[in-house]
Simulated assay, not measured.
Amino acid sequence: MASKQMLHMNHGQGETSYARNSSIQSTEQNRMKHLIEDAIVDLCSTLLPGKMLIADLGCSSGPNALALVSIAVKAIHSHCLEFQQPTPEVCVLLNDLPGNDFNTVVKSLVTLQRSNAPVVVTGIAPGSFYGRLFTSGSLHLVCSSNSLHWLSKAPENLTRNRIPAYDVDEHARRERLPVVLDAYAQQFKKEFRLFLELRAKELVPGGQMVVSLGGRHSNDIASKSIRPCEALYEILHVMDSEVHSFTSLA
Rank of each mutant, 00 (worst) to 15 (best):
L196R: 06
N116V: 09
N64K: 06
D42R: 11
L232Q: 13
S26Y: 10
T46K: 15
V179N: 07
A222I: 09
C229M: 14
L198V: 08
P86M: 09
S22G: 05
D56L: 05
L53N: 12
N146V: 10
F188D: 02
S136I: 10
W150A: 06
S17N: 07
V105G: 04
L148M: 12
S144A: 11
S115G: 01
T27F: 15
S212W: 02
L68A: 11
M52D: 00
C143D: 03
A231S: 13
L43N: 01
T122M: 04
L249P: 00
D42S: 14
T159R: 06
V243P: 00
A2K: 09
H149C: 08
H140N: 05
K189E: 08
L47G: 08
G207I: 01
E82V: 10
D56E: 09
A65W: 05
L194V: 02
L7V: 06
L232T: 13
V204T: 03
S147E: 04
Q113N: 11
D101S: 03
L139A: 12
A19W: 01
T247M: 15
I124E: 03
L35Y: 15
E170R: 12
V105S: 06
T87V: 09
V204W: 00
D169M: 10
P228F: 06
L232P: 00
H171C: 08
K201Q: 14
V210I: 13
A117D: 02
Q187Y: 05
S3H: 10
T159G: 04
T104A: 14
V92G: 00
K74W: 05
A19E: 01
Q84G: 04
Q186N: 08
L198P: 00
I221Y: 14
L213V: 10
N21V: 05
G127H: 07
F246H: 12
H140V: 04
A2Q: 10
G58H: 01
I71K: 09
D220K: 11
V210Y: 01
F102M: 07
A125V: 14
L148W: 03
I54K: 02
P86Q: 12
Q84T: 11
H217G: 15
V121W: 10
P86N: 12
E191G: 03
I163H: 08
T27L: 15
R162C: 12
I71A: 10
L141D: 01
A55K: 00
A200L: 07
R20Y: 07
V121E: 07
K153W: 07
A65P: 02
A183K: 00
Q186C: 08
L249T: 10
T247W: 11
H244C: 08
D169R: 13
K153R: 15
L53P: 00
N157S: 12
L181Y: 08
A165W: 05
A39V: 06
K189H: 06
S144V: 07
D167A: 15
S212G: 08
E197K: 12
I24V: 15
M52P: 02
R160A: 13
G214E: 15
R193D: 11
I163W: 05
P86S: 11
V90R: 00
V180N: 00
Q25N: 05
N161T: 07
